[in-house]
Amino acid sequence: MVYLIGVPLLALLAVFQSAILSHLNFLDGRPDLVLLAVVGWSLTGRTEEAMIWGVIGGLFLDLLSGLPFGSSAIILVLVALMVSLSEGRFWEAHLFMPLSVTLVASLIFYGLGMVTVLLIGRELDMSYALTRIVLPSTFLNLILALPASQLAAGLRDRIFPPEVEI
């Protein structure tokens, strides 16, 4: 069930990111919806599913990007793993948890993205990339972090209603 919802959702988020969010630039940065979905689902405690979401979402991103097919998938699995190590489920209720996890996840995501760009032999102006792309994108991700984690928690409760002892 979770994949029946997850796969089309991730495809839609990737398409939205390419078709709409690319016009809403803050400097040269833009929010990354697939990253937010993976982080949000990881924070619900369903880590293994989040990792699979990372692979699927990453493949959709790579389909609509000039980066090598599979590279974003690897990065997003690493991001989901990192979130799982933060025991997100335990701290889920805390307001700052989604923010701090999104901050670290964004920095890892864009950092590894830059490494990928360098690995495929392209030049990169580090200071330009940091100030015009990484920091503005991270800022936009932070703005969307709380609604994303709330939506993910809501989706989890709908798909897997909490068991109540009577």
Partner: peptide, 8 residues
């Protein structure tokens, strides 16, 4: 659409 990667 534009390239999803902001680096390209």
């Amino acid at each position: 659409g534009k390239d999803i990667s902001p680096f390209l």
